[in-house]
Amino acid sequence: MKAFTRLQGLLAPMDRANVDTDLIIPKQFLKSIKRSGFGPNLFDELRYLDEGYPGQDNSQRPINPEFALNQERYQGAQILLARKNFGCGSSREHAPWALDDFGIRCVIAPSFADIFFNNCFKNGLLPVVLPEDVVDSLFQQMYDKEGYSIVVDLEAQKVISPDGSEYGFEVDSFRRHCLLNGLDDIGLTLQHSEDIKKFEQQRRASSPWLFQDL
């Protein structure tokens, strides 16, 4: 997994509440058996004016000029600024895969849906929770100033705006440790194999029906 330590990047808006995973990556693209290649279809229904399908040449499709990520001033954005309950809906990890493939490394919002939030950390993507009034103010500053770029420092757990204002955020220590070092979760868990085996043996003795072959 890619490590996330400190990122200075352009901010782009996703200015609506309850952005769901169907909006982030529509279902027709979930048929892929790969983890990559979802970027061109991130927010497909908002980015393009026609219906997308897997395998098509996206460069030939009509672009929605109203959509922020299509606008010149937000090209190359690595940080997405969003509203509350971002990532609600399905468990599809294709949502963080699509954001990552597009080039987004961090999403800032007042709140996230649980499964999406969790999935981000497995993919080197940092979801940052900031209070609603701070998010409001970042939206305002971003709209007011073209090229609005901020720093997200995971080590210090701070977002730093261009005027030097700092906004603290919290990430639980295990997730932070894994993200800072780009660590694979599975390898870490398997260090506890003996504990897992011991637990399993006890469970097999007390509830044998759980271990029958299917």
């Binding site: 969790n118 993919n123 599975i186």
Partner: peptide
């Protein structure tokens, strides 16, 4: 409960989930 694909792999390999 539902899990993402990385967690599917995690459960495949370890029979466990890291949870809060």
């Amino acid at each position: 409960h539902g899990i993402g694909t990385s967690e599917v792999e995690h459960v495949f390999a370890s029979q466990c989930l890291v949870a809060k």
